[in-house]
Every structure is written in C-alpha cells, then in structure tokens.
Design a protein around this nucleic acid. Structure first.
Lengths: 336, 336
DNA sequence: TTGTACGCGTTATCAT
DNA sequence: ATGATAACGCGTACAA
C-alpha cells in the first residue's frame, strides 16, 4: 500500500495525497475528506524509510548510555525517552559499557544510522584528557550532541547538569559543621561528574580549614551492585586502623554498603556513623535506617535536556550550558 | 558524499562500489582495494535511509516496555539491547506506561516506523480478556512479535518466559514444609505473570491440603518504589488483626517493605517472620537481613529471546515458546 | 569482472 | 487547488 494506491483510488495525484498527509493548506476540504476516507479505509501509513530518505531525517535521536540497567542511568534513559517521544522523536538506545573504544564505536554506529542528534547519558563519556574527547567534537560536526551531567566546551555540544561540586560540598559541610571531621569520602567513578564530587568534598575541608587526609578518600573498585563488597571494603579499612565517623558517598549503593558495615560492627547510625548517599534512589528507603541523600533532580535535568535538544533541532538558539542545583534530602542516617 | 562520488573517484560504477560495500564475491582484489581506499579516505558511509528504502528494513527492532526505570524491566531492556546490537540490530526503545491505550498507540508507532520486529518486555501487555490482545495479534501479521514473561497463542508471536507459577509454588511450599501455614502473599500486578505467581501460591496450599484464606492474598496498590507504603500497608493489616509469620512477595520491593515492617514491629526475621522476594535484585542485599528471593535468570531469558527474534528474522524455524525455571536463592530472611 | 538502468515511496518544485 | 516530475541514495537484475 503506497501513496500511489491511495492517489488512484481517490482519483487525485500523489501530490495531493502528500499534501493531505502533511496538513498542507491549499487543499479543497472536499478533496481532503475523500483522501482521508480512503486512507482510513485502507489503513495506509506512509513509508518511514522513503520519507526519511527525502527529508534526510527520521526524527530519531540516539541515546548513548554506558549501562541502562544501572539504577540512576535507567531513570535518566526513561525520562529522556518519554520526553523525546512526547516531542515527536524516536529513541535509539545504545548501551556501550565502560570501555572507551566501545563508546566511540557506538557513537559511530548511531551517526551512520543518521540519527538527528545524540544524547550522551552520564559523564563516563567525557575523558579527563581533552584529546580523548575528540571523537565527541568530531561527532558534533554532524549533529548536535547533548550531554547529561557532563561538561565539554565545543560548538554544537550542549550540556545539562547538576552542580555536583556544590552538592557534595554542602553535604560535607553539613557534617563538618556538626563537628565531625573524620569523614570518609567513598567513590567509584573518575568520570567528570565523579571528579566534581570529589572536589566538592575537598573544598569543604578547605573552607573549614580542616586538614585533608588522602587516606579518607577511598576509591571502591567493584560493580555497581556489590553492596556486600562495599561493606567488606570498609571493614578492611577499619581493620587497618582507619577511624571515621561519617561516610559521604558518590552513589547511594556505596552508602547502603556503609550502613551494612555499621550494622556488622555494631555501630549506631547516626550516633557512631553518619552516612550520606547520592542520587536519592530507592536504596535510600530500602536501608535501615533510611539514608540521607543528594537529590539531583534528574527528572528536571532530563526534561530540560530534551527541550534543548528539540529546540536545537528546530533551529532555535539554545543555551550551551544549563546547570541545576542539587538538594540534600534528610533522613535517619544523619542528625543534621 | 554518496555512492556516486565514490564511484567517480574510483573510476568504477556504483554497482562495483555497492558490491565492495556489501562484501559481494565477484570483484577483482585490486579494484576492491582501490574502492576501499577511496571510501576510507573520504570517510564515506552509506545512507541508511536509502538502504532501508531499498531493502525495506533498517535492521531495527522495537522494544516496548511499560517503565524502563523499573529495576527489573531496566535490566531486561539492557540485556535485550546488548544482545540485539551484538546481532547487528538497532533498538528503538518505547516506554508506554501502564495505560492499555498508550500501549496500543506505542505499538502502532513502532510499526509505522517499520521496525523489523517488536519485543514486548513484561506481561503487562497481555490482558486477561483474550479480546483485548487483538492489537498484538494484528501486529503479528506485520512483523514477528516477541514476548518476555508472557504467553499468547498466536501465529508469529514468540514467547520466552520463566515458570513463575512453579517458582512461586516452590517458594510457598518451602515455607509450608517448615510448618509455617499463615503465609501472606503480597502482590502488585494482575498481569499474566502476576496471575501465574498468585496461582503458584494457591496451588502450594492445595498440594499440602492447607486451607486457603483470601485474607492472606493482599494486593498492594502503589508505585513500584514505595517501600514505606508497603510497610504501612502491612502495619494496617497487622492492626486489623491479621496474623502472619511469613510473606511471599511478587517483587523484591514488596519484600523489602515486609522487612521494614518487621523492624518497625520488633519482629525478628526470620524467627517471627520469614520473607521471600522475587527477581533477586539489588534490593535483596540492600535490606538487613538480606532477602531470600527467586532468581528467574533474566539474562538467560533475554539472550534466548533475542536469539529467537533474530532467528525468526533470518527465516529460520524457531520455537514458539521457550520456558526456563526459576531458582530460589537462599538468604538470611528465611531459615529453610 | 564490471556497467546500465530501474525501482524503492516519499517530498518538493514548478507548472497549470 | 491540483498535477507532473525531479530529486533523495541505495541494491540489484540484467546486459555486456
């Protein structure tokens, strides 16, 4: 069933059918109705490939994501997809894993698929060395690139992020202000956003003139689901003689591990150990006591990101960077 | 940059370029090299739309999912996408929400986009009334439909599922065998798979000749993240005088709520209350004590589903139904 | 082994 | 208000 079939049955030319299809003005109401009736009756729908070929677009955006099964990234992907669809765009999902080479290959794949834009979810895509981000700058010459929670100075690259630096700084400050000076910072990512958080922690110490100790900045090298592994990791630190009365984590899952560690060592939370997580995920209410956590307003971020994306595609002038603040959600794992 | 540009520069016809591009045999090595060099040098990639138009396929599969931010569904989407990509297919993600009308509309959207196949993730898409599934049967006349964790008898519809009936039956039986007869079954979905689980619970009682009480089958009507809501829900039941010494839940999140309920009421787990969840998600190790849960081998399911999908698209004969068994993973919330 | 020419189903430009 | 026709870029049957 093609536009030719419809045109024949309606006794008009394909041009007229096309005009009806695309809501073009100059078409006699009577003709329009006739064509629409035939279309309805035949259950005809235009061929998306042909349309794509002609318009050089299939209204499709690529979503690049290291791991869409991750609690936080999954939510991001979900919000982005829903917003894109509401705006009339399809989403091609592409999970890359954490290997830079795979990320590059995936990006190429999407560009070859002729997506209208690419959204990169999570700052794992931004390397510390500026040169390693060349693949993104190259891509930006073809289509606009949207970055969630990352920052990259480059034409046609748009960044939407939460102020992770300030959020982590605030969380740390809140503890320092309570007189807790031995705060363990626990993190598991050296991405752009990961670095910002670490800097926030450090900066809080500088602000309060409390000496910083490298021993208190611990990198957990494990999967994003291994809560028990985090617990053991902290146990080891404890056994090695490291003393800490608070944990600030770059992710709720690490904080959940800290809660487990406290239980295993009969530490009372928050009396003996305060815990602050990040992302305000379901893990915060699953733990006991519930975990104080930074909410970075992911839904708002995604909504704004998609607005920027669609606006750009429509040729509107859009802000190159959009920054939101995070918010500390207080729960029982702290007494602030 | 088109195939014509390449053909001119290489001094051959577009047919030859096309042959090189598609690895066709009959092409002189020397010619092939020349063409490949030019392609490399120009950074040429074929236009996916034109190719799609000609072949009537862009090697794309639609993934329909009610809510890809759900812990379990997110994992499913992730595994499916990775397997599809490994097989050379793109994934168009489409989150529908739980409104049947939106599901139908989303399916139409994907079909209009001319995907090669549609994968429906989760049994929420299968209605209890056979007639309500007509939209799926209609779709199956256009492209093969793959169902994850659902069952529908229809040509060109392929089902890959876990035996949720048996898994829940086993979980319930394990408790009954320990002499615990007042088991609360807690669920939050009336989907196909949801019903199977409930039936499994009931059947266990029948097998052991223990009288079944409707009061012990409780539907929790809330979001999929409201652990506190579940806790309150159980509190209310408790206050109303309902006594139970075990909870079998259709989802880990409900089980996590049960653990919280136990804590709030100073019940010892598993001495006073045994808890079994479903999905073996991260929530099982986040809770304290950790939760015994049914693992339904999602990764295997997804891998098999994609194999069936790709096989079907390649014209191979594929099994209409593939059923795997679940497995009870024992943790500290039960003493079995 | 290679080249020519047509078809895929649209959109859009230009006449009428 | 409507129709004829040229792109769009590729794959492929057929011819050479």
């Amino acid at each position: 069933m093609t536009i030719y079939d419809i045109s024949k049955q309606a006794g008009v030319s394909i041009a007229t059918v096309s005009r009806v299809l695309n809501g073009s003005a100059n078409v006699k109401p009577k003709t329009k109705k006739k064509v629409l009736d035939i279309i309805e009756q035949c259950g005809y729908t235009p061929n998306a490939f042909a349309r794509g070929l002609g318009l050089n677009s299939m209204n499709t955006v690529g979503i690049l994501c290291a791991d869409s099964s991750d609690l936080y990234l999954a939510k991001a992907v979900y919000y982005i997809e829903r917003n894109l669809r509401a705006g009339g765009y399809h989403s091609v999902l592409c999970c890359t894993g954490y290997d830079p080479e795979d990320m590059k290959a995936s990006l190429s794949l999407l560009l070859n698929q002729r997506v209208d834009s690419v959204i990169m979810v999570g700052s794992t895509f931004i390397a510390a060395e500026s040169g390693d981000n060349q693949y993104i700058k190259d891509a930006a010459q073809q289509v606009p690139i949207m970055l969630l929670n990352a920052d990259l100075d480059c034409p046609n690259v748009y960044c939407t992020m939460c102020d992770d630096f300030k959020s982590t700084q605030d969380a740390t400050l809140a503890l320092l202000n309570k007189g807790i000076n031995d705060i363990l910072y626990l993190y598991n990512s050296n991405s752009y956003s990961g670095k910002k958080k670490l800097n926030g922690y450090q900066s809080a110490y500088l602000m309060k003139d409390v000496p910083l100790n490298k021993q208190y900045q611990q990198f957990f090298n494990g999967t994003h689901e291994d809560i028990d592994g985090v617990c053991k990791f902290l146990n080891d630190l404890h056994k090695k003689g490291l003393e800490f009365h608070a944990v600030v984590a770059s992710e709720d899952m690490l904080a959940a591990g800290a809660i487990k560690y406290a239980k295993a060592n009969n530490l009372s939370v928050p009396d003996d150990l305060s815990v602050i997580g990040y992302n305000n995920s379901i893990l915060t209410t699953c733990s006991e006591p519930e975990i104080t956590s930074v909410d970075n307003h992911l839904e708002t971020l995604c909504s704004q990101l998609v607005k920027t994306c669609i606006g750009t595609l429509l040729g509107e002038e859009m802000p190159q960077k959009t920054i939101f603040s995070g918010e500390l959600v207080h729960r029982a794992s702290t007494a602030l």
